[in-house]
Computed example of a mutant assay.
Amino acid sequence: MLFLSEIIKTQDNILNVHSIESFGTHDGPGVRFVIFLQGCKLKCLYCHNPDTIGLEGGKPYHIETLFSLILKSKPYFGKNGGVTVSGGEPLLQAKALIPLFKKLKEAGIHTALDTNGRILNHFAQELLDAYTDLVMLDVKHMTEEGYQYITGMKNKETTFNFSRYRELSSKPMWLRYVLIPGLTDQTELLQSMGNYFKNYKTIERLEIQPYHKLGVHKWDALGWDYKLKNARENTIEEIEHAVQTLKPYFKKVVVN
């Protein structure tokens, strides 16, 4: 499962960074130093950070600079916090992430990756196996048709191959799922996801992410057509229905 054509070519020890959040509380356990990397091969219809999609742009950061910034935030991590790398798609820059995550592990700092699971080349495998404490895997849709509609790309089992690889490692994983009325919230889809993952030992929790339109203005600024403009946000009842449908299959279901 190699996607070498999808790797961003950067200098060694240089990461192309879109933005940094030094006190994140929604991207993994505890207080997190969150690095959003630039570039993603998917163009999800609901993406609330579409400005991270383009491979160009961003700001180059040497890993020593990032490590220095992280150390300044370390006192706030407490027992559960740490560093999360998100995007965009962080595994596009897996090669340069390896030395950063290695330094973080040597410093006793918890590491997490928020990924769509599309890339599993040897750089990604080394990063995952040796240095990534937690994977947060975005499950876009349970059907090939739904996946293509949401992302604009074929799935070709990439999400499920990635999840199986992580399961075999026996290392922790969270699932994340955006709940969109009429598109991803149907009971049969939720049950399908539950049945697929119910025997996984590594999944610690499923995070339901209710649909919102907070990023629409960014699509407008980029001159892109936001195709979900007629979609509505979830009702409280719909969110609760999803939680109750999924609870029998997972150790923990939370609304993020």
Rank of each mutant, 00 (worst) to 15 (best):
F36D: 02
Y200P: 00
I208D: 05
Q11L: 11
L113G: 03
S73K: 08
P29R: 09
P99K: 11
R32C: 01
I239H: 08
M173H: 12
Q11K: 15
Y149S: 04
E238V: 02
L91R: 03
L206E: 13
E240M: 09
P29L: 08
D27C: 09
E188A: 06
R32I: 06
A221S: 11
K201S: 14
G108M: 02
P60W: 01
Y149M: 06
K247T: 15
G87S: 06
I109Y: 14
S5W: 08
L183K: 13
K74D: 06
I98P: 07
K171F: 10
S170R: 09
F250T: 14
I119A: 03
F123D: 10
G54H: 09
S73R: 04
D225P: 05
G194P: 10
T143R: 01
K213L: 06
G88M: 03
I98W: 03
N161I: 11
T184I: 08
K9S: 12
T52Q: 08
F101R: 02
N49E: 00
A107I: 10
G82S: 06
E144L: 03
K102W: 15
K247Y: 09
P248D: 11
E106H: 14
I8C: 03
Y200E: 04
L168D: 15
G82Y: 11
T245Q: 11
A221I: 02
E89G: 04
Q191I: 14
V255G: 01
T10H: 06
S22Y: 02
V34W: 02
Y211A: 05
G57L: 10
L228Y: 01
W224T: 09
K140G: 00
F162A: 08
F160G: 00
T151E: 07
Y147F: 11
M1A: 06
G30H: 06
N13T: 11
E21F: 03
V254S: 15
G82C: 08
T52V: 01
N80Q: 10
T184Y: 10
H110A: 06
S22D: 00
A231V: 08
N13C: 13
N13F: 13
M173R: 07
L137S: 05
K252P: 00
S170I: 09
K198V: 01
R205A: 15
N256F: 08
E233S: 04
N195W: 03
Y211D: 00
Q93W: 06
V216Q: 03
K251I: 11
A124C: 06
I98S: 12
T115P: 04
V83K: 06
F250S: 10
K156T: 13
R176L: 15
K171I: 11
N199K: 02
M193D: 13
V254L: 13
V178I: 12
T159C: 04
K154H: 12
G39W: 00
M1I: 08
S192E: 15
T111Y: 12
L127M: 07
L222E: 04
L222F: 10
K247A: 15
K218N: 07
F160R: 02
N199C: 04
T52A: 03
S5C: 07
V31W: 05
V83A: 03
R166H: 11
N256S: 13
L69W: 09
R205N: 07
F67T: 00
I208F: 12
I150D: 08
I119W: 04
E237M: 00
V216T: 10
Y147R: 05
I7Y: 03
L45N: 07
A221E: 09
A94E: 01
P75S: 13
